[in-house]
Design a protein around this nucleic acid. Structure first.
Lengths: 230, 230, 230, 230
DNA sequence: CATGAATGAGCGTTCATTCAT
DNA sequence: AATGAATGAACGCTCATTCAT
């Protein structure tokens, strides 16, 4: 039983589309250790299972769309920022990264899942199309980056962003966070901070190192001071 | 059925343990885009399905063990190299990375899968134990690293390795290779190399940038020249 | 969307009725191995899915109607031919059979499907009504037949037609044609022509035998000479 | 929960195999208008759903196997009879036909279903293999037939059997029986016997006509006198 | 009348795990 | 210890039909 009426106008459909993504997102936040099945998503959205398939060709495409929406928000913010003439510093990029990726507990588990499934359960065409759109975003942001960091020669911008993204995903997968809500005792008892590190702070340090090495000069060491947030 | 008798001696058990890992590895190399099911692994090992469960508590633990064995080889080689007094350069570490990770088509898909599943299907305790052992290895290698790169203060070595590992995994997940055997036409036709890059060369560049930024000075620009597509 | 206005006049309705049947027929001819779903039929007819249900109580009834229209054409031709005084020979009936059933790639798959579904998915009343109308046709044609073949006593005409029809359908279901586009290699490699026979020629022979046995005398051995594979 | 223990010996497996076929057959007899789903079959057999898939590659293959078992019984009896030197008459063949096909209410609906699905849901290889085995049976029986009916030239035997089979299937599909348990009122009220005929008697007459026409001489008009059953 | 968005029962199949032998 | 038969929960997807607009 649907909560709302029918989506007849194109914009109503957009809304439904988003409502389904929202539902999937909510479920993902509620239990990041599980990927909900289509029935649950439909239920959470107040729709019938079949209805989900009116808006998405399949489950993988739905998850990819959730992820892409988040990615898009980040890239839109980044591209906008880089379009402004005021010189952009690493600080600014890090801030956006935190706002859109790190601080949204949804982003990283989903990103990991999407890349992991990419070529397994994701239909090849869907995966390819996704990567194409991502490439478009990365290219534009990369070009913007090159405007602000003269050390970067054409192409270096995209490469740096790509590597940063890899670092973001990779570090998160190694962090204790990615273990879900499990083993709290273990976490507390782990004396070695090798994996049980504070992801946000560690990410900052790692990205700074990467960026510094990429532009070939030290970068200002930042004002963010939440170095221990977990 | 390759092995017929019972494993009664402790060393027989070790042998069988390895035989199962070998079988899983063989299957993984044969088709890296697929994770074999337990029946296939047992079959490949010449054992019955149930027998696998005498040696491993479950499928995820088995996969993790395969991965860990590979990781261990890498870290043993790295730690050995760093134990030698002759100064180690980035070159040396990259060479080991390629030999154990990049050039073994098994390593990266499995690593991605293990980290991806880390807190999904992997039982928390198993994941935690794995990370503990990994932490041990990283710590020792990190300490060794600090001996050769004076710029690294205590703790920087582990961090650098951790970040490198993240970069290795993350970049691989973004590369077109991870898409399996899919869409060859698409790959060929993709004009943008944003994701369709040559993983080995790109990884080298990324790691160099990261290391350079981490030690705070430019690093020699390398002799490896296989910068082409894989 | 081919038809836009509403069908208000009774004849408009007839037209639309036919338009839907035409669409279903077109789809069936395009791929005889598949039974299209309602959405496809509606689409092909340039109508909305719901509209189909204004003209047909359900999918099975629609398919039955397509079939019946074809059957009707055959029987009208047959009855017309038999109404003429010029003596009818087996040849003539076979010619009509080929023209309306064998040579129209649509007829046989649909007939098989309709009879196959007859008491499965077809609502009993619909099936019954269909059979009643068929009975009417068969009776009239049967009576006509008896006029031309004096050996046939009253009732034998219908029976012969009924048996012929059974043979037509039954043989087709056993022919390799009914296997759709599958296993071409297998077909080619099959040394035994038991099922891999040329349906049109085999049907002729079978019908001749049946008719000959029914009238109790040999029948002229025909001028059709397309005895080869179809 | 299984009723019986495990099937470990090869013959136990055969038994299980048969038990599943029996279960499917029972369900089919209980309601010939429906094709049971795999869960029901498993349930009826006292097994878990997955167990069925240990014995059959899929649902279609299971149904085909049920059908084939029945077919096989008929052909074995026929071939045996024809192997005996005592002259075989049409009577004898008709008797076997009735015993194995007509009087077993299961045979015909299933045959219709199997042929109908042949190239739709049946996997091509399974369908092809089935037809091959059927061809083998038909060939042997056809050869035997030719021994007893000198009028038949080599090849005529198979052809006659094939046509008989087609007639059996086709006539049944046209009979009122194939409408399942539905419309009893309709059946009673149908004044026209065109479709509401007594299948067993009608089949006899039709087969006699076909055989008579095939051997080119009248055949003795039989002792079976249940000409009005049903 | 016409539309097409929404429904939801229905189903085949997989596979990690268990446990009787 | 070893086996492999049995289990059964889990899940994605289709599509005929309904009904609000």
């Amino acid at each position: 039983m649907a909560i709302r009426q029918r989506a007849i106008q194109a914009e109503d459909k957009q809304e439904r589309h988003h409502a389904i993504l929202d539902a999937a997102e909510r479920l993902l936040m509620r239990s990041p250790e599980r990927i909900a099945n289509v029935a649950e998503v439909a239920d959470e959205a107040g729709l019938a299972k079949g209805t989900v398939y009116l808006y998405f060709p399949g489950k993988e495409e739905l998850l990819l769309a959730v992820h892409e929406r988040n990615v898009d928000r980040f890239f839109r913010a980044l591209i906008d920022r880089l379009a402004v003439d005021a010189p952009a510093r690493v600080e600014d990029v890090l801030a956006l990264t935190h706002a859109h990726m790190v601080d949204r507990p949804l982003f990283l588990p989903l990103a990991a899942r999407c890349f992991g499934a990419m070529g397994q359960s994701v239909p090849p065409e869907a995966g390819f199309a996704f990567k194409q759109r991502m490439a478009e975003r990365l290219s534009r942001a990369g070009a913007g980056l090159e405007r602000h960091f003269p050390e970067l020669t054409p192409g270096d911008g995209v490469a740096l962003l790509r590597r940063s993204y890899a670092l973001i995903i990779g570090l998160w997968q190694m962090s204790a966070q990615s273990a879900g809500a499990g083993c709290p005792a273990a976490l507390a008892g782990d004396p070695s901070p090798v994996f049980n590190f504070a992801y946000p702070a560690e990410l900052d340090r790692a990205l700074r190192a990467l960026w510094s090495g990429s532009v070939g000069r030290p970068l200002p060491a930042a004002g963010r001071s939440d170095g221990g947030a977990r």
